[in-house]
Design a protein around this nucleic acid. Structure first.
Lengths: 122, 122
DNA sequence: GCAAGTCGATTACATTTGTAATCAATGAGG
DNA sequence: CCTCATTGATTACAAATGTAATCGACTTGC
């Protein structure tokens, strides 16, 4: 399963999670404003993601349409867990506590999260 | 400031955050149960951390005592922020929402976070 | 039909990272 | 004194990563 996805690869995944399937060109285009990667670079990343089993490619005429195989939610869970394990001994509340302290959540943020939690308890 | 600290380096930092200053030997000893690194490996990691400005070393006789320069809290903040930015558009509530959906939150987590938020509002 | 463009595939190459062997200096035991 | 152990420094080297040039195959406009 899922070998590790690097930062650059992740940027490519985000594009495809937002909109898929896409050709290599479209992906490169989407990335143009955030990164300044050449087309070959983007294609390399696509190939690596394909090799890692994170993407599937289906031929459309003479080119490929790429689409994510792994779900964003799974990736996000995995990464979140990794961080929480590494830095907070696997406990979530310290993460929230830490971010909250750092960051002066707006009243609105707080309400939002409270609402979420209330929902959960029911 | 702080160049990026790799995973292996982070393990070394954790040891020194828990107890410092320590000699290279002591660090290696502390790591012995979690990792199986040779002493040279640990020393390489210490050198790299020194080069990155994450540690300071003070000579004690013919060896060095290493101590963290960057605070754990700063590192943790940095990494947490990085994750939240990368995966949740910088907003905390989607993180909580995500974890909630995954049912990764224990009842205890929920209570703790609620308490935290209540605290914040006052 | 053929030149020029378009694609994916292959190859490249520097840097970072993980992991460690080896070297050189120094200090300690005999 | 001299040998040996200890310790930091230097060097090594494969794998992963970031970034890209180049190649070869296939279209497509003339």
């Amino acid at each position: 399963m899922a070998e590790r996805i690097s930062d650059a690869e992740h940027a490519v995944m985000e594009v495809l999670w937002a909109d898929a399937p896409l050709t290599a060109n479209s992906v490169a285009e989407m990335l143009a404003d955030s990164q300044s990667w050449s087309l070959p670079t983007v294609k390399t990343l696509l190939s690596r993601l394909l090799a890692k089993g994170a993407l599937a490619a289906e031929a459309e005429g003479r080119r490929f349409l790429y689409r994510p195989i792994i779900a964003r939610a799974d990736y996000v869970s995995h990464e979140s867990r990794r961080l929480v394990d590494r830095l907070f001994g696997g406990k979530l509340s310290p993460l929230v506590a830490h971010l909250a302290e750092q960051e002066a959540l707006t009243a609105e943020d707080i309400s939002e999260i409270e609402a979420l939690l209330k929902e959960l308890k029911s």
